[in-house]
Design a binder for these strands. Structure first.
Lengths: 214, 214
DNA sequence: TAGATTGTTAATCGATTAACAATC
DNA sequence: TAGATTGTTAATCGATTAACAATC
């Protein structure tokens, strides 16, 4: 029950989604090597991750999918649900709203904010948009501790600092800049420019030999 | 000049962006520790990365920003430019088009494709959209080896296979699914659901002790 | 020179992989 | 039982960090 690593948590999230897909197909049990193929990892890694969440399978039938999904949920989900704020309702912000709309009731975007007053007081993909000036109040009232930043790079640092002051402890940052925040705030960067440049580089040069073998 | 690792290439991409920002500010030289602060890394790592691209600084003035940016560019950019294809022109696809529009002439989205014929034959954010049926022909003609997948998860595997048959060797995949492709194809996943779940988890549980200390 | 930074090697760390007795 | 899979430990691997002589 101690703290899991960044990567482990990511894999758990993926496993759960895969398990939900299997449930929909009517499958009840799964072996570590089957899950490994779906997740793009190894069987040993899957088993180690199951150990981390404290769920135990059987040598005969493998893992019970429903029970396993529930164990992962108990580990990852907030029991009372968890609200998320979105900052920046431009092209990217609206796509993010559409992407997450109605997907996970436990982890829904409860409010969006934008500095542009013309974008405020509208409902986009089911989410109410407020002016930035109301961010502190609304975040505090809804007890929001998680936020998504989808503002231009020039504004991201100021927005992030404001979010932290309002009580946010985790940020998913789409702005192509490294945020400087207190160490206890968890930041995950999605840098689309960097990702595309990496892909472009390796589509010309080829993957490193070692990686191809894996 | 041998193959660089995934992570190194990512950092080089970030360094170059930071260097361009410094040039705009009129700065001419930078020390490894300054760049490290901006990039969120360590000075030693910056120096090791500079070694990797073969650029040498001076103990007195550090690194010449213009020359360094040029060295990184010589490493990362295709001399003749490199075209990118986008598959899927839904909410996310359109946001991606807007995001990359006019940013990097060397790495532009040259064509977009969608299975929905109603989305084809339009120009969105400066990019022409074609029906999926024309993908093979157009990708071959434009010699496109890099692609972005922004289609629903259910279609992603089929689209990816089709892209690889058309000559694509690197894929930036936004669909929340692991693609099964030949090992020589480089795939970078951007899984927004996984990223948001990670952020939500750590905003409740806090970062691991070790990571906070770093 | 003195001092800070550089290129480069050695030590450390963590994560992945391999291996194997225990289990159904 | 026989056979495949499980939980768990040991070995390996790579990347990061620390250290230091060479340099301007």
């Amino acid at each position: 029950m101690n703290a899991l690593s960044d990567k482990t948590v990511g894999r758990l999230s993926l496993y759960r989604r895969l398990l939900n897909g299997l449930v929909a197909d009517g499958v009840t049990h799964v072996y570590s090597h089957q899950l490994a193929v779906l997740a793009g990892g190894t069987a040993a890694q899957v088993r180690r991750d199951m150990m981390a969440v404290g769920y135990t399978g059987s040598p005969k039938r493998g893992y019970d999918i429903r029970e396993l999904a529930q164990s992962i949920g108990a580990f990852m989900d907030a029991p009372e649900g968890q609200g998320v704020a979105l900052i920046g309702v431009g092209n990217l912000g609206r796509a993010i709203l559409a992407y997450f709309a109605g997907r996970r009731p436990h982890l829904a975007i409860q409010a969006a904010f934008d500095a542009d007053p013309y974008k405020a007081n509208r409902v986009i993909h089911g989410c109410h948009c407020y002016p930035m000036t109301e961010m502190d109040t609304i975040a505090a009232k809804a007890n929001i501790r998680t936020a998504i930043i989808a503002v231009p790079a020039t504004e991201a640092q100021a927005v992030a600092a404001k979010l932290v002051r309002a009580g946010v402890r985790g940020i998913l940052n789409f702005a192509p800049i490294r945020l400087h925040l207190p160490a206890e705030v968890y930041v995950e960067d999605i840098d689309m420019t960097m990702s595309l440049e990496k892909v472009a580089y390796f589509s010309r040069k080829g993957r490193a030999e070692k990686e191809v073998n894996s």
